[in-house]
Write a protein that binds this DNA or RNA. Sequence first.
RNA 1: GGUCCUAUGGAGAAGCGGCUUAACUCAGUGCCCUCUCAAGGCACCAUUCACGGGUUCGAAUCCCGUUAGGAUCACCA
Length: 550
Amino acid sequence: MADLNELAELLFPDVTKTIADLEKEYPARNLPEGAEVTRFAPSPTGFLHTGSLFTALIGYTIAKQSGGVFYFRLEDTDTKRTIAGSADELISQLAVFGIKHDEGYFPNGDEGKYGPYQQSKRRDIYRTVIKELIRRGRAYPDFCTTEDLEKIRAFQEANKILPGYYGVYARDRNLSVDEQIARVKAGTPWVIRYKSQGDHDKKTFFEDAIRGRIDLQDNDVDVVILKSDGLPTYHFAHVCDDHFMHSTLITRGEEWIPSTPIHLDMFRALGWEAPRYAHLPVIMKLDHGNKRKLSKRKDPEAAVSYFLETGYPPEALLVYLMSIANSNFEEWSIENKELSIKNFTFSLKKMSLDGALFDGDKLNYFSKEIIAIDPVDSILKKVTDWSEQYDKVLHEKIMANPAYFRKILNIEKERAHPRKDYAKYSDIEPLTRFFFEKDYAEIVKNGLPFNERYSKEFLSSLLKDFADKMIYGVDESTWWNSVKEIAGAHGFALSNKEYKANPENFSGSVSDAAEILRIALTGGKESPNLHEIIEILTEEVVKNRLRALA
RNA sequence: GGUCCUAUGGAGAAGCGGCUUAACUCAGUGCCCUCUCAAGGCACCAUUCACGGGUUCGAAUCCCGUUAGGAUCACCA
């Protein structure tokens, strides 16, 4: 009679190593007490998802603040979904957010002693472990075709039985070794399934680092661990890799909670100590009154690239995500304005348990704040770099005269409470058009929104006086006095109070006069400080604009 | 459908049996400041913690049930 060894040899003839060999190759890390080894383990299936950034940020933060290691592992076992180049894209986007891994996969090759860090290159490791599992009778070849599986499933559904490959429905679970060998030899395609020893009627539990004790039904499904393409499924790869790479804490989305018993079951079977788990809440979006996961298809905010393209400072997104992760972060950052996010002590215990709704308003708030307090030269550089890639029109304007644009960005900036009108860099160009002659001409052509109560002649003489009599190159109050004087000469009340007391005596209040000046110069009723605008435009340009309208 | 997770205002949330007629932040509203806007200042915005029971002198906080939302049941991760 054939035995399991023979089967193992037949299945994996080229595997000569043992688990013990692997243990020697990947010895325990020499890290101080309390140091956490975390990882970011994405599938290279597209661009960086906002939820992934969130997960990465948390893993990174925990590793850093515990003096541990944060590594990057590429989970590229689903060859059908793999998109070439996306791994490198993921890494470069993470880098934009300052999240850099200490070891793992890098575009120019692996760094670290626990590699390869790309699952498609770890076939031998998986096969070594699986071969041993076969020998121990803890895994077996399954010869079911897709149709066979479908039949089983259909039967279960029709009879309202829990679907899955388990117990009596695990067709090939109890094949004799002889039979297995015969089928393999006959060339029947196979996959390897883990032979679960779990009892569906029993419960298991684990201590989640965020949620505390979680009770679950024991797993009794014989999950496939090695696919027909020779690559492992997530379940097995996770157990194997996180063991040999010595992860101490797994941060992953809460969608993994239900499959944790599978993982725990395998760790037990292999005699390995399982890592701790932290199942993170997922960022949600309100859709027709219902919460759902941020979706790459439907929500632009799901792709990190969206924020980069729109021109949010990366720091803003990070701060926003951290405020979701630990709500006390906001209070902390208000009290520690000069400190960066890196100084904040993050705590898994303080994470909320259900998924937060993505809140664009709040992101905008943080972003405005960050842009506003960023010194001019710093923001000038950032906007210049950003526009070079994402906003050609703006970029041309900046490059034509950086010093001029610097002045524009500096409006009402160097003060205790700086202006906050830009939530993102893409807000800048539309709001600053009137500073440029070409755009200004366009604005005038489209018509200026002067109040209709003022006649053309009235406007004309007022504007002419503004052009001729306004004082330039002086401080704000001197300038303002000259404006008031001109307004007064045209019948405007010098204060709102005065005007309101006897509106019939005046053409309007100074505010109205200022509005006319503002519209003439900027084309709109709303703008930043007029005095600063005038000084930036220069006396010459202001006079030209006013005279052209007069 | 089974199992699990979650449940405090429009959003993020603090709260861990009496200090809470529920902190803080965003949004919203009002007033003030003011040449407009942005900002800033000051107020307002849950008498109530999904609902129903129970425990207790006392519950948002503990227990039970219900409801709702989410996740998961692949040779995808």
